[in-house]
Structure formats: C-alpha cells, structure tokens
C-alpha cells in the first residue's frame, strides 16, 4: 500500500513540474496564439492532477471549462486583438506596488492557518464532529416516527440522516451556503467585467 501511494506521489511530482514549466512559459511566450495553446495544455495536465487526487468532478470541470471553453473563448479573443502581443515596456509602478502589497497581505494571512491535516484545527474540532453526528448517528433515527424511528425529535434538521453518504449529506444540507457564495463570486465577476469593458465608446479613448 505504501508503494502504491509513492507511485501516485511520483506522478504528482512529475505533473506539477510540467505544470510549472507550462505556466512560466505562458508568461514568457510573446505570441498570444502559442500562449493560448500552452494554456490549454496546462488545463489538461491540471485535470490529470485533479484526477490523481481522486477529485474526478473537479477534473471533469477543469477539462470542460479550462481546456475546452476557455481555449475557445481565448481564440475568440485572438480573433479580435490579433495573435501578436503589442510591446508595453512601460512599467506601471502603482499597480506593481498594489499587487505586491496584496500578495504580501495574502501570504501573511496564510500564517494564521492551521497546518495541513492538523487534528486540532478548528475545522476538525468544531465543524467536522457536528457534521458526522448529524449524519451517521441519526441514520437509524431517520425512519419516520410512524415506522418506529425517532425522526420527529429533530425539528431543526429535517433532512439530516436521510443520506447514507457523509459528503453527500453535507453537500445537500448546506447547498444554500454554497449557492449563496457562488452567486456572490459570479456577481463580483460580472460587475468587474462591466466596469472593465462595458464603457461607452466616448469614454474608451486611450484604452488599450
């Protein structure tokens, strides 16, 4: 079993090395068409990494969105802007400083996070036990009261105990939070997009 783990780890190391090579070369390539091609390769390799991590659903999404739709969209952008990058040697210093500060703040924020797999992390001591108790222990109690279960006693968590799979139970029961923050992310992206490209023609003078 230990041997099997090391094989998958080896595959991960090789794939991540190839990912670093591709992502760095996307920055270095001056031909935008070539950069799009390499970005498509990046998504394909990344989806294998996800699959290697047993995240088949993420791998499917990465392949469909990253390698499929994103590549076609980028080619659509190439139709508009052309395949050769215009040289912009000028360095925008305020933007550089802002990005640097944001990066520093984000890196500083990671110092507060618990170590990976730490059994004493808040997620392990507070959240996970609650989920497990809601799902596993009430499985027997999930029978309706008419059939002898004590299902009626849990007024506040109507759905709990209906799903034998722990992950499915959490995903189904807390779907609303998931959707709420997804909507927030999509809303933010939409507003940013409107601010960036949705300006009227008269205001667009001087924009690249």
């Amino acid at each position: 079993m230990v041997k099997a783990v090391s094989e998958f780890l080896l595959l991960d190391v090789i794939l991540l090395f190839l990912l670093v090579v591709t992502s760095v070369s996307v920055f270095l390539l001056r031909n935008l068409f070539a950069a799009t091609m390499v970005l498509s390769l990046y998504s394909l390799l990344m989806s294998v990494v996800w699959l290697n991590l047993d995240a088949a659903d993420v791998a499917l999404t990465e392949a469909a969105v990253g390698a499929g739709i994103a590549t076609v969209l980028l080619i659509g952008a190439l139709v508009v802007v052309g395949a050769e990058e215009r040289r912009h040697p000028r360095l925008h210093r305020p933007a550089l400083v802002l990005v640097g500060l944001t990066t520093a703040a984000l890196v500083y924020g990671t110092f507060d996070m618990p170590r990976f797999g730490d059994p004493l992390a808040p997620a392990q001591t507070h959240v996970a036990p609650e989920y497990i108790s809601q799902t596993v222990e009430k499985l027997h109690a999930s029978e309706p009261a008419a059939r002898g279960g004590d299902y009626g006693q849990h007024g506040d968590d109507y759905f709990h105990g209906h799903v034998p799979n722990l992950v499915t139970s959490v995903i189904v029961n807390y779907r609303a939070y998931d959707t709420l923050f997804e909507v927030a992310v999509i809303f933010t992206a939409g507003v940013s997009l409107i601010l960036l490209v949705g300006r009227r023609k008269s205001e667009r003078r001087g924009a690249a």
Binding site: S47, L60, A63, A64, A67, G68, I75, V79
Partner: peptide, 20 residues
C-alpha cells in the same frame, strides 16, 4: 468516463483552433 470527455473536448478545441 473522464477520459471519454477529454477526447470530446480535445476534438472540439482542435476544430476551433483549425477554424480560427
């Protein structure tokens, strides 16, 4: 199944690139 999906996406992307 994932491999099958990759095949389809690969085909679509290649067609899009060649058309461009």
């Amino acid at each position: 199944d994932v491999a099958l999906l990759y095949t389809l996406i690969n085909f679509v992307v290649t067609i899009a690139i060649l058309k461009y």
